Simulated scan of single mutants.
Amino acid sequence: MTDDETPELPRGIALAWGVAANPQRGPKREMSVEKIVEAAVALADAEGISAVSMAAVAAKLGFTPMSLYRYVSAKDDLLLLMQEEATGLPPEAFRDHDGWRAKLRALFEAQTLIFLQHPWILSLPITGSPITPNSSAWMDAGLEALSGTPLNERERMAAALAVSGHARWYGMVLSGYAEQSRLTGLTAEQVSAREAALFDRVITEEEFPHLRHAIDAGIFTAEDDPFRFALERTLDGLESYIAALDRGETHEVETAWLPEEHAEVASDKRVREAAKAVRAAEKALRDARKHERQVRKEARERSVRRN
């Protein structure tokens, strides 16, 4: 493709924007892209993303899989449209908050709620920016929240993406706890207590001194929300950066992406094999040190008994 050529929209994205060609054949009155996507989302909400297939969605609608392919020609397109439908539009109410910080916090909470309502979204692979209407609206909302700040456009996008990243990670953890509660019948607090007890059994001070100290301090059963703490500290840093810009100060910030050759090197088969050997050697070293600590402990105990 030359620089002056405009790339053609992939069919999934074209469907999301409503600019894809309609099928020439098929049960037009009873079937539509919207109905297919709604059925697929309902199936994923009820049974998980693994239950979603073209055949399963067709059966839910009472049609053959071939009927679906006339409207949505690939499962990847269906997954894109499902994510678009489940994500929806950002809430208008975020604009009611005063200041960029409160607006970003409101968007963070709204995104987290979406992940809790549709946790299967978190299992979808990220293959790039989702160039769809609803996803674009969320990005636009984040930029709008920061529109009155001295940040430039790149900095606003980076800040909005950071908040979205916090929401995604928060949603992963909360939905994981919800799934454990569903499977075990335990409350979220009981799941946390069970997790803490398991950590307590396997984490020793000799091998993981800092993690052991955190466990002894009750970190896994504390009522504090570490994810909101992390979000607020991120916003603190952004607020400090904005204040510095208001004072006329400038900051040198590393903005370059990782060099492409890093990805190429990392994907080289020989590099992967060498890295695997390093991990095996590191594990053997940890095991040896653990054995040494155990032997020393036993030796000290024997010495105490003799004396």
Score class of each variant (00 low, 15 high):
Leu68Cys: 02
Leu151Ala: 10
Glu30Ala: 15
Glu254Gln: 15
Asn307His: 13
Arg306Ala: 08
Glu249Pro: 00
Trp169His: 12
Val41Ser: 05
Val19Ser: 03
Ala158Ile: 12
Lys276Asp: 15
Glu223Trp: 00
Ile219Arg: 04
Phe94Thr: 01
Lys283Cys: 03
Ile215Glu: 08
Ile13Trp: 09
Met1Ile: 06
Leu107Phe: 01
Ile114Leu: 03
Leu122Asn: 02
Val295Tyr: 04
Leu89Cys: 03
Val271Lys: 07
Val37Tyr: 05
Pro23Thr: 11
Ala20Phe: 02
Ser192Arg: 12
Leu81Asn: 06
Ala21His: 06
Pro91Asp: 09
Lys75Leu: 08
Ala20Tyr: 04
Lys75Glu: 12
Arg300Glu: 15
Val57Met: 01
Ala284Pro: 01
Ala74Gly: 02
Ala178Pro: 00
Ser129Pro: 08
Leu245Thr: 04
Ala56Phe: 05
Trp17Asp: 01
Ser147Glu: 11
Ala21Met: 05
Ile203Ser: 00
Glu109Ser: 10
Arg289Met: 11
Tyr69Gly: 02
Ser175Thr: 04
Glu47Thr: 02
Ser123Phe: 05
Gly48Glu: 12
Met157Phe: 11
Glu47Ala: 07
Phe229Arg: 13
Gln83Asp: 09
Glu223Arg: 06
Arg70Cys: 03
His262Phe: 14
Asp287Trp: 03
Gly237Ala: 09
Leu245Glu: 12
Ala40Gln: 06
His97Ser: 09
Leu231Ile: 03
Leu174Thr: 06
Ala102Val: 12
Ser53Ile: 04
Ala280Ser: 10
Glu34Met: 02
Lys276Ser: 12
Leu174Cys: 08
Ser181Glu: 14
Gln24Lys: 13
Glu8Tyr: 06
Lys35Trp: 09
Phe199Tyr: 13
Thr2Lys: 13
Gly88Arg: 05
Arg233Lys: 15
Ala275Ile: 05
Ile242Ala: 05
His291Gln: 14
Arg194Glu: 15
Asp246Phe: 09
Ala167Gln: 05
Ile242Asn: 04
Glu205Gln: 15
Leu211Asp: 04
Ala14Glu: 02
Arg296Thr: 04
Leu245Pro: 00
Leu174Phe: 10
Glu155Asp: 08
Glu252Ser: 09
Gln117Glu: 11
Thr112Leu: 15
Arg154Trp: 09
Asp216Gly: 00
Gly128Tyr: 08
Arg247Ala: 09
Val304Glu: 11
Lys283Trp: 11
Lys60Phe: 06
Leu186Arg: 12
Pro125Asp: 14
Arg11Phe: 06
Trp169Gln: 14
Gln294Leu: 15
Ser73Lys: 14
Ala110Ile: 01
His213Lys: 13
Ala56Cys: 01
Val41Asp: 06
Ala55Val: 12
Thr6Arg: 12
Glu30Gly: 07
Arg182Leu: 14
Ile49Thr: 02
Leu116Cys: 02
Lys35Pro: 02
Glu84Tyr: 05
Ala188Asp: 14
Phe220Ser: 01
Thr6Asp: 13
Val173Trp: 09
Ala196Thr: 05
Val265Asp: 03
His166Tyr: 10
Ala159Arg: 04
Glu47Tyr: 06
Ala197Gln: 07
Met31Asn: 10
Glu189Pro: 00
Glu92Leu: 15
Ala275Gln: 10
Ala55Met: 10
Thr184Asp: 11
Arg70Lys: 15
Ala137Glu: 08
Met139Tyr: 10
Phe227Gly: 01
Glu292Thr: 03
Arg270Ala: 15
Arg201Glu: 14
Glu301Trp: 10
Gly128His: 10
Gly142Leu: 03
Ala106Arg: 05
Gln83Asn: 11
